[in-house]
């Protein structure tokens, strides 16, 4: 991975973080905004995993390793949140 790519990713991470705060400051409490902040956070996580943790450049088996726990955590969270009430 080129060092320039590393820097570009870092600039995105910083910008997205500041954007999260700006979005919150302008439109606090909105569900849509909360979702947007969540998506921004997820995009940052994906970039870190892909570029800083080099997953993009790893062999397929390593790339697949991360999928089962991510899927299971998603199922756990969905069940936790949506199993109560109707």
């Amino acid at each position: 991975m080129k060092i320039a790519t590393t820097l570009i990713v870092w600039v995105y991470l910083v910008t997205a973080t500041i954007l999260e705060v700006v979005i919150y400051s302008e439109f606090p409490g909105s569900t849509l905004i909360n979702l947007s902040i969540g998506i921004l956070a997820a995009s940052k996580a994906v970039l870190i995993v892909m570029y800083y943790m080099h997953l993009k450049y790893e062999p397929r088996p390593i790339q697949y390793l991360i999928l089962p726990p991510t899927f299971l955590v998603a199922v756990l969270i969905l069940t936790l949140v949506f199993s109560v009430g109707h």
Binding site: I66, P69, L80
Partner: peptide, 23 residues
């Protein structure tokens, strides 16, 4: 990487608990 998969579940459970409590 295998170890980190366990960490994903550890913190996934904790953040899931947070979301459950918030709900």
């Amino acid at each position: 990487w295998i170890f980190l998969t366990t960490e994903v579940v550890v913190f996934g459970s904790i953040l899931g608990s947070y979301l459950f409590i918030r709900s």
